[in-house]
Design a protein around this nucleic acid. Structure first.
Lengths: 222, 222
DNA sequence: TTACGTTTAAAACAGCTGTTTACCAGCTCG
DNA sequence: CGAGCTGGTAAACAGCTGTTTTAAACGTAA
């Protein structure tokens, strides 16, 4: 059995270690020794550790954006100008997210990486993701806007991030939570189980009644 | 006005740097030089970097658990055996969380730390928090159980973590999100604003309809 | 074959990491 | 007085970090 490409071996090993321990806690020597690759190969092929991190993300996000754009194209064609319901939009996103890493059976890794990217407050990664993949997100939020015309602009913005928090937080900490759930409720949950549970919660969150107008601070722009 | 204690100076500086850059990315030399304290002082007073990290958390969590227990005591006395409504429980928790760091005006730091603690998949911190502060959480979930008798055990467990994800995720990434919101919607949000927006969403999420039993509207992959 | 660019290998690089050591100031108490 | 303690200091420790350098092996084309 021919070993995969050196570049591929590095990426495969790096994404697992990054997901397990974080970026700063994973050294290039950890990666290269486990991948059975020479240390210098990383700098030769990727240039730097930062670039390697970005490459790990790109390997997930590039196919994701491509398929998500395609899925949205299909939806817009199907609905032919009519408003796409919110549930359909959310379902489509979930399907695409689940679909992309399925080939490598590594949804867990993907979600952990997203969680890490978010919890890295400052730095190159957030900028990189924003710059390279912000447009897909914009397109999605535009469609969500059309699907929820009754929501004020700012409210929709915040609610989208609320549910984003729920999903990333839950799926990125899945292993730890699953251990607790299994111990306390003797119930083994799969990722698919979890998404089934997430759906009604997310929909309810987006459709929640508007908050009371601010009482102890300036009223929001109405 | 005399400089604060060496121990306090270390803690004050450490919590800010940890919140800004994470634990691994913050060296003891970063902390001690900014705090104008000798490098060895950290190991002298705390023993190790790990212990310093735990001490930073303890300074928030110890007062929090104390007040939260007190607040729950008051609630149980007030309701005298009757079921405490879910909204009241959530409101009480929010108030306590807001109350604790108000003295140092550092709610933001507190939430960032919680987010970091959660995104650290493995390691000492999760164990430490679980061991030292798990009992308050258990008491709270017991009360939530009584307030939501219609929810299956496992469903309630997951929904609590869903909303926990929303809150921690949003508040710990507050600065970045606030910048976007301000730029796009010209609206400045305070933490209190955000909690006002969070309330109906969280309540709706907890009260969402139960998911379809193991339906398969999602493609079967994996 | 020679020649060439690509890929791997091992070693060295300077710099930073957490921790420990040895020492000193100032204090209290016998 | 000196012993003993506490808090603070500078220096050194061994080890790991990302990156670069040097050398060798490789496959392919002339």
């Amino acid at each position: 059995m021919a070993q995969p490409d050196t570049v591929t071996r590095i990426l495969d090993t790096a994404e697992v270690l990054f997901a397990e321990r974080g970026f700063a806690e994973t050294s290039l020597r950890n990666i290269t020794s486990k991948a059975k690759v020479n240390l210098a190969a990383v700098n030769y092929h990727f240039g730097s550790k930062k670039a390697l991190i970005q490459a790990v993300f790109a390997r997930y996000l590039d196919p994701f954006t491509e398929r998500f754009h395609a899925a949205l194209d299909a939806l817009e064609a199907e609905y032919a100008g009519r408003v796409i319901p919110l549930e359909v939009l959310l379902e489509t996103m979930a399907k695409t997210v689940l679909d992309v890493p399925a080939e490598r059976n590594s949804l867990k890794v993907f979600m952990r990486l997203l969680g890490l990217a978010y919890s890295q407050a400052q730095g190159h990664l957030r900028r990189y993701i924003q710059d390279h993949y912000g447009s897909v997100f914009s397109r999605f939020t535009d469609l969500v806007r059309q699907a929820t015309p009754e929501l004020p602009e700012a409210e929709r913005f915040w609610r989208l991030h609320f549910v984003l928090g729920t999903v990333i937080f839950t799926l990125s900490g899945l292993d730890a939570l699953r251990d607790i759930a299994e111990k306390d409720y003797g119930e083994h949950v799969s990722v698919r189980d979890l998404i089934r549970r997430l759906r009604p919660v997310v929909v309810a969150a987006m459709n929640a009644p508007l908050p009371d107008p601010a009482s102890d601070s300036l009223p929001a722009a109405v």
